[in-house]
Every structure is written in C-alpha cells, then in structure tokens.
Nucleic acid binder design. Structure first.
Lengths: 232, 232
DNA sequence: CCAATAGTGTCTTTGAGACATTATTAA
DNA sequence: TTAATAATGTCTCAAAGACACTATTGG
C-alpha cells in the first residue's frame, strides 16, 4: 500500500419540494474552514463503514432526518487536491429525495447548526465545492424525473395526481399540461396504485389518492422542454 | 481531521467494439492479492492528483493506451470495508469508450501484465469487486447509447452509418433496423457531419463517411427493446 | 351561487416500427 | 454475372402536444 492517504467524507444533497419550490437542506458552519457559510450536510466515513451507511448516519446526526425509507443514491466523487484547506479529502456526494418533512431541528453536529431548507434557486455560495455538488445533484434529479417514477419520492405515502404534477413543476420549472400529465402517469402500469380514498386540500373538489406502485421506469420517458445538450 | 484514512484508487472500465463484440480491457495480476486473476486497469491516486488525471495516467502506465482524445467519465465509487484484503481502499470507477485500437502491449505495471481485450460476455470472474464495477460500466454504456451520441466514441474519426449501427448491435445485443436507424441518426441535427469521402471495407458498395458532429443528446432517445426497470 | 380544484376526450402531429427493392463495388 | 454491402420510401401505429368544458366540494 502506498503512503498517500485520504480522508474520505460523504456529503448529501437532500432535496424536497416545499410550497412549490425545490429546496435543499443546508447547514451553517460554526467551525473553522468556511465558518459562517452554508454547506451540505455530511461528514467523515468511519472505519468499517460503507458509503451509504455513512451518508444516512451523518444525516441523522446532523439534522435529525431519518432517511430510512426514502431514496438515497450515490452521485459522484470529488477529490480536487485543494478542495479542502485542511488536507486531502475525497468526498462522495449523495442525492436524497424526501417528502415535505417538518423543519429539521435535531442535534447539531460538532461544526455546524442544525440545518434548514433553502430554495435551490436562491442558493448563491456554499462552502468547499458544495455548490458544484449541489448543481450536480439538482441536474441528476431533473434528469431522473424524465425517465423514472422517482417524482413520487418527493410525495407523502398517499398523494394525488395534482401533487405529483406540482413536483414536476417545482423541479423542472415548467408546467406540464394537466390532462397530458394525467394520461401519462395513469397509463404507465405500476406507477400509481389507487387507494380508493380521496383527499381534500381545503376547498375545491377532492382528488383521488394514490400510492407508489412497483414501476421504476417511464417508457417512453417524459421529456422536459428545453432538455440540455451538454451532459455526456 | 479524523484518523480513519483511506487509500484511494481509480479503476477503469475501458470498453471497445472488436469484431462485433463488446470488449473490455483486462490485466492479469502477477502480485499477491488475487494473483493470477483478471482485473481492471487502475491504481492509486497520487498526492495532488485529481481523479481523472489519475485514471488517464494509470491507463498509459499499465497498458500504453493514450486515452487523450477519447471519452472518459466517472462511474461510481466503491468502498465496502472488506473489498481489499490489504486494507481500507476506496476506488473510483471510471468508464472509457475507445475505438478499436491495436492490441495493447506496452509496459506492464508493477503487479500485472500488459493487458488484453476480452469479450464482456465471456468474462466470468474478476479480482476484488471488479466484476461489479464492470457490470455498472457496461450498463452505463448501454444506457447512454439510448439518449446520447456516444456510440461515435467507439468509432474511428471517420466512419460509416453501418459501422455506427454495428456499435449498437454489439453493445445492446440487438439489431436495429438499418433503415430506421439511418433515418434516426441522419435526422438528428449535429450528430453526423458528412465528409464527402467514401469507404470501402473489402467488397460491396462503399458507404459514405461521416465525422462526429457537435450534438451530444438524442431527442427523443433511441430506446432499446427490453429496457430494464431496475435502475432507480 | 361562487370560488377553487379535479377530472376528462379529441384532434393533430411527430416519430417509431415494420417491410423490399435498387445502387454500387470487387471478384 | 454474382456476391456483398449501402442506401432509400411508405404505411401503420403509438404517443406527445394542444386545447375547453364538466364535476365536486367548501364557503
């Protein structure tokens, strides 16, 4: 084995949709490097710990969010030699998609506050290279809504088609036609399971409630309008 | 900084198409862990070296392949605590797509032979968790041919539509209809640039030569037949 | 009755999928 | 002339995109 060793961290891009906006969970740093700036939740991987385990552990520790049943996937690794002033740190970025949870309040970690939701559109600067990681995570989420059923990961267990459509609106920033959208999602076998129940969100006709089905892929995909070209 | 440090390696899934088969570049290990087994090319990241740089350097060192102008992208990181018997090693898998190059012969690394092309379908066992990394790389390549113009990365600078179609056949294991295929690729603006020249591969009518255009995305995508469902 | 939201049907257009013949070259 | 490969056009069908009205509920 060679002598060039790295500290290995995990960082999480935790996304949700709140009040029609795509939001990311950020901590405010209270310790030395980048003190006072916002950062993604994350931390160092422990001996004998795998990456996903580290990611879920850090999330609970720093924000109280139990990711348990929610969607978490690996995003990419970042290891520019100067990305952390304290030394050589490789971080494995992760992407988590969660429903609209209560404001996180739980026990702060050693070097940051407890965390809060921030609209992605208003995030300007982040500690380390976290802005890049966030951008990659958001782009991954946008792309995956096209060809997977992952939008349901942003929804509570039971949800209406309108709620699901508002996820797409928030994540993509576009507004799919309600009729075409409804046709698409209901005609994908295994995407939505009817529960029989209905849900009234205040006034107006109540919508029918669905639950996530076993399908994971959308065939053919639901394409965004201005789908970018630069993602080889 | 904590005391739990990792060695960080890069490994490469280098794919090409030879004689109509999707092939991967493998080394035979000559040193202790997994001696005599096949492995992906790769090695440890040096101090002050970024991941992509390490990947390209290792490839040249171990196999003589200059990846320079070819396509390389990060795949995923693998860090199961017991994945390397020598200690805690995180490896960042990379995917490289190259044209049908001459058999690699160059200077072998310290702990393996110079490397050779192996049909992916015939690979059964690999050192470490490299079988998993290979599987992920192959799946990524298959998926990307659907919605990008990346198939051209397997072709020489000038190529015919038939050559391009044979890439799809080899990677997907299916045979797209020549007319529909031709219609699709020629009607995607910026995918293929006519060179005016023609190319005769032995007997038969020569085909028209094209060069890669600036387009990177296929809209809408060209879907495989039995597109899998399990890739959330 | 009014305001708010859910839910639905049809037409047009685009592109995928299936299919057979002609063109060009080397042997 | 034959064998090999390249190239092309049309029909059918599936699904996307555009578009307006009716249904149900709470206030």
């Amino acid at each position: 084995m060679r002598g060039n060793l790295f500290a290995v961290a995990v960082d999480l891009v935790v996304l949700t949709v709140r009040d029609g906006e795509l939001c990311v969970l950020l901590l405010e740093r209270t310790a030395k490097p980048f003190e006072g700036e916002f950062a993604l939740p994350g931390g160092f991987v422990q001996p004998k710990e795998d990456l996903l385990d580290a990611a879920t552990r850090e999330l609970v520790t720093e924000t109280g969010l139990v990711i348990g049943t929610h969607h978490v996937e690996q995003l990419a690794s970042y290891a520019a030699p100067d990305r952390d002033p304290r030394g050589r740190v490789l971080t494995v970025g992760h992407l988590a998609l969660v429903p609209d949870l209560p404001e996180p309040e739980a026990g702060a970690g050693a070097d940051s506050t407890g965390g809060a939701w921030h609209p992605v559109a208003k995030v300007d600067q982040l500690a380390f290279d976290h802005a890049r990681i966030l951008a990659d995570g958001v782009e991954r989420a946008r792309a995956k809504l096209e060809y997977t059923t992952l939008a349901a990961a942003f929804c509570p267990p039971d949800f209406t088609i309108s709620q699901l459509r508002r996820i797409y609106e928030a994540v993509w920033g576009t507004t799919p036609d309600p009729r075409n959208f409804s046709r698409k999602v209901t005609s994908t076998p295994g995407f939505l399971l009817p529960t029989g129940a209905k849900f009234s969100s205040g006034r107006g006709r109540p919508g029918q409630l669905f639950r996530r089905g076993p399908a994971t892929a959308l065939h053919p995909p639901m394409l965004r309008d201005g789908d970018s070209d630069g993602d080889l």
